[in-house]
Amino acid sequence: MKAPVFEYAAPQSVEEALSLLGACQGESKIIAGGQSLMPLLNMRLARPDLLVDIGRIAGLDYIRDADGGLAIGAMTRQSDIERSALVAQRQPMLAAGTRFIAHPQIRNRGTIGGSISHADPAAVYPALAVALDMQIEVAGPAGHRSVDAADFFITYLTTALEPDEILVELRLPGFPPRAGWSFKEVSRRHGDFALAGVAATMEVDSSGVCSFARIVLFGVAAVPLRVEAAEQLLLGSKVEQSLFEEAGAMTSDTLDEPLSDIHASADYRRHLAGVLTRRALAEAAGRAA
């Protein structure tokens, strides 16, 4: 199908974009890379009155060092994150996870800010935002604010962003040098959205005891889901296969009502979440120095 009629503006600055959003009487929508929004427009599932294209704003496309971590501009293309030497060095799971996003042709256009703002429950970047403790920098009419990723995702396709706000930057701490990580998903075909996925990080002390664990599931609930019960189980325990099996089983058990749709039943997603968590924890532990 063809997109419905809408007004279009391509502001040159964040300030100009904010005033366009603020002045809009009807529904406004920001377009960044457009790789999720264009299908919605073409299928007329989205019918905004005004489309604000932030792709012409200079200075929203960068990957920089920030206090040993990273600052990434909202308009940074996924393919640039995938190829960045700085990302690979500072946040290897961000680089690895990016390769699970659709296909190269999509990643050439898709942006990190757009993906996180869109907040698809099965998408890679929202899960990584929670797993890697991203700070989400937001510009609005009253100035800038910073939102923890843990507070950002509210429900399906819904975030803490107000209609007159723009996500402008992601800030990430550096990945702890001794920590291990693992990113896994199951999808029908390579490049499809995940039926279920997990992003896990772990630190292991010199005596082989887990001193930090983070488990974030995606594709199973309305938002990226931290499995704190399993994290607590790991903390202070000796890392070994039986522990990962227990954590995987616990992960399955904590999912009350996983998503159920034509792609996968709730039971299947519950099963996948447990298996993927077990495998991811083993891999993360193996990578932890």
Binding site: I31, Q35, S79, P104, Q105, N108
Partner: peptide, 12 residues
Amino acid sequence: RSVRSCLMLAVQ
């Protein structure tokens, strides 16, 4: 760079 021309507006 390769892109999907159906997922872009001409104005972009």
